[in-house]
């Protein structure tokens, strides 16, 4: 079970409230504004700021 499209349509960064997009490897969700990447663990997005890494670009 992957992350559903219905979820991706409305999910945002908890900090900036900007839309997030699936990373190319499908393992994370990236905020277009702050570049935080939130991990997806067992198909469940972990949208906690402390669990995110910041992508260099």
């Amino acid at each position: 079970m992957a992350v559903s499209q219905e979820l991706l349509d409305i999910l945002v960064c908890p900090l900036c409230k900007e839309r997030v997009t699936l990373t190319p490897d499908g393992q994370g969700l990236k905020c277009g504004k702050c570049r935080r990447v939130f991990p997806i663990q067992d198909d469940i997005p972990v949208m906690l700021v402390d669990e995110a890494r910041i992508d260099p670009e």
Binding site: E6, L11, V12, R19, Q41, I44, P45, V46, M47
Partner: peptide, 25 residues
């Protein structure tokens, strides 16, 4: 998610997050 599988419900999804900063639009 386990219960969802048992009940075979397709239209439900889960996110780990905080109520004080809900990650939805």
């Amino acid at each position: 998610r386990e219960f969802q599988g048992e009940k075979q419900i397709a239209n439900a999804a889960w996110v780990c997050g905080e109520g004080e900063s809900i990650p939805y639009a």
